[in-house]
């Protein structure tokens, strides 16, 4: 009996010993040398695997970080600046502050502003609807309201406003990963710097049509008149394809552009109300911003200011594409009585 136990122990022990020796040499021979910092960095990353950094996942991003050590160009939108501060000591580099960013919807085609003229009853997918037709209101660039962006968001940072039919970005949750930007077939959503106290000014329109057709489909469309371009003292606004764009890096948030916009497509977000109160009520249709109070006096004052600034920026002379007076007649054309 003893012998049976002894032989089993000895033989198994011998097999185990030999295997251990083989494994030891194999392990030494085929050792994968991995930077231990990759694991350290990976532990700090949020493990959301959202792809917002441009890499396949958090692990891939950690490898890239350790390999290049470039904290200026590699950025995790989910972790933000706190994460950069944590990772910098591991990599042994200086931490650089990056301005927080947020997704913004560059369309204000609510059901009021862009009145639906046809009914869409196909699949609830922007991608498909975009390939099919221009949209219920007829704007070929505007939001289709079928929520591809909301479905793409991993951070509960988007929902659809039932009254307006437009998606809304929840600023607190948004990590600017860019998933919604990719999901939108019309490139309406843009990642912009969050701004101090979340104050931002941007054009809430992406319609590249000329003034008349743009205004026909949506009251608050950018008509490419170029007034804001002339008004801007910092050359932050450019006009391309009948569409104004405010460069967030050049914009100093002076708020001069918004009052001169004839359609009210420039949105000022989270600013205190303007000081000059309206006297009489012939204001253009400007329901965009929550805190907007524009008057004619205001715009006149702004114009006189712009005259000064214009003399300084003499090369700032874009051509207005359409005159505002022409548009008023176009805007009241009745919607077609046809249904889709």
């Amino acid at each position: 009996m003893d012998q049976v136990i002894l032989s089993a122990v000895v033989s198994l022990g011998a097999i185990g010993g030999t295997a251990a020796i083989i494994l030891y040499f194999v392990a030494r021979q085929f050792k994968v040398i991995e930077d231990p910092r990759i694991d350290l960095v990976d532990d700090k990353l949020p493990a959301a695997n959202c792809g917002g950094c441009g890499y396949a996942g958090c692990r891939a991003f950690a490898e890239a970080l350790v390999k290049t050590g470039d904290l200026d160009n590699l950025y995790c939108p989910v972790g933000g600046n706190d994460l950069v501060a944590e990772i910098a000591p591991i990599l042994g580099v200086e931490a650089s502050e990056k301005a927080p960013q947020v997704a913004v919807l560059r369309c204000n085609g609510t059901r009021e502003h862009a009145v639906p003229k046809v009914n869409y009853d196909g699949p609830r997918s922007c991608a498909w609807a975009h390939s099919l037709f221009a949209g219920e209101a007829g704007c070929p660039n505007g939001c289709l309201g079928l929520n591809d962006c909301v479905r793409s968001c991993d951070f509960h940072a988007m929902y659809t406003d039932k009254d307006t039919g437009l998606p809304v970005v929840v600023e607190e949750n948004c990590v600017a990963c860019g998933a919604c930007v990719d999901a939108c077939p019309r490139s309406i959503i843009e990642i912009r710097p969050q701004g101090k106290k979340s104050r931002r000014i941007y054009v809430t329109c992406v319609n590249t049509e000329k003034g008349a057709p743009a205004k026909k489909s949506c009251q608050v469309a950018c008509i490419g008149c170029g007034k804001c371009v002339k008004e801007c003292p910092f050359e932050a606004i450019t006009l391309q394809n009948n569409l104004a764009y405010i460069d967030p890096h050049k914009c100093k948030l002076c708020r001069k552009c918004a009052p001169v916009c004839p359609t009210g497509c420039i949105l000022e977000l989270n600013f205190p109300p303007r000081k000059v109160k309206p006297k009489t009520g012939k204001t253009p249709d400007q329901k965009v911003g929550k805190e907007r109070n524009t008057t004619e006096d205001d715009s006149k004052a702004a114009e006189s200011q712009s005259a000064k600034s214009q003399s300084q920026n003499s090369d700032n002379s874009p051509k207005p594409d359409d005159k505002p007076g022409k548009r008023a007649s176009d805007s009241d054309s009745a919607p077609e009585n046809t249904e889709k």
């Binding site: 003229k117 037709f133 221009a134 007829g138 077609e336 046809t338 249904e339 889709k340």
Partner: peptide
Amino acid sequence: DTGKIVSGGPMTGKALTTTE
């Protein structure tokens, strides 16, 4: 009670957004 105006046939046709 027009519901849809289709260019083409009922199976593969495309609905019109306007008759103009």
